[in-house]
């Protein structure tokens, strides 16, 4: 039981790293970016290519995946995304679905449609037991990395000047602009970090979620659930939403495999009926 809880938390941690960038960009610019998963897939493939073709060690591929996602995110934000901010949600949805489709077909063309497998270094393989709880080494590693990230994000968001400017912009972009905060630059940077985190999550997630060209479509709903349930104005909201989703998904698939795939949808529906504004949304006047 606790093993499942542990696996679920590790899974949720990866989900959090994957989705947190999305929740901030959605909150900040009120921009619906369904293509977020494409950045995660990019990170995943960067890790795979570096390990398979260049023989790079796994640990080195993680910052590379982050950088890859961040750089592509920065470039796309400047070239393509920025003109979209003023448009309707419908346009944003169509536009980002277009990007997803191109990414899916492109990945299929370049990498083939099969599932990618990576060889983890031996010190990350296998599991050990503590007090009867089976702990996968890799999952523990993921837990530590993502936990650390979550803490530093929370710190960065609440304690630094960058974070306070960001929060001001999330609350009201117009007022923030009036106060002389460079909202556009701030957003470009946030977008890059968010995309980078997605890339990192994609690389970390290969072992847990798999990686094939349909990744951005398959996990789109997960990201949306994390963002909608978690709300878009905090780091902790999406964090707990991701944990909840991760544990529910893993436990559901383990205990009731026949209907395990439905668990997250049921969870989503129940949560939305109970709290239509999001589980951790701040009350707004």
């Amino acid at each position: 039981m606790l093993t499942i809880l542990f696996d679920g938390i590790a899974y949720g941690m990866v989900l959090f790293v994957l989705a947190c960038g999305l929740s901030v960009t959605m909150g900040l610019m009120n921009f619906v970016n369904l293509a977020h998963g494409a950045f995660a897939m990019l990170g995943g493939y960067i890790a795979v290519l570096l390990m398979q073709k260049a023989g790079a060690p796994f640990l080195l591929t993680l910052p590379a995946a982050f950088m890859g996602g961040a750089i592509v995110g920065l470039v796309l934000e400047r070239l393509l995304y920025r003109p979209m901010y003023g448009k309707t949600h419908l346009d944003q949805v169509m536009f980002t679905i277009g990007i997803v489709f191109m990414a899916v077909a492109g990945a299929d063309y370049l990498m083939g449609s099969s599932q990618q497998i990576i060889r983890l270094p031996s010190w990350l393989q296998g599991r050990f037991e503590i007090a009867g709880i089976g702990i996968g080494r890799y999952r523990l590693f993921v837990l530590c990395v993502c936990g650390l990230l979550a803490f530093s994000l929370q710190w960065g968001f609440t304690k630094t000047r960058f974070g306070s400017r960001l929060r001001a912009s999330v609350d009201d972009a117009r007022v923030a602009r009036g106060l002389g905060i460079p909202v556009n630059r701030l957003f470009a940077l946030t977008f890059a970090i968010g995309s980078g985190l997605a890339g990192l999550g994609g690389a970390l997630g290969i072992e847990l979620m798999g990686l094939d060209p349909s990744f951005p479509l398959k996990f789109m709903i997960y990201f949306l659930v994390v963002v909608t349930v978690g709300g878009t104005s905090t780091i902790t909201g999406p964090f707990f939403a991701a944990m909840l989703l991760g544990v529910a998904d893993v436990a559901g698939k383990y205990y009731v495999p026949e209907i395990g795939a439905f668990i997250i949808y049921v969870l989503m529906v129940v949560l939305l009926i109970a709290r239509p504004e999001g589980l951790f949304a701040r009350a707004r006047s």
Partner: peptide, 19 residues
Amino acid sequence: QYWMFWIGLFLVLFVLKGR
């Protein structure tokens, strides 16, 4: 086989310029 790519490109261009 790459219909999806073209439809994606079409969507992006359409929203950016074509509409």
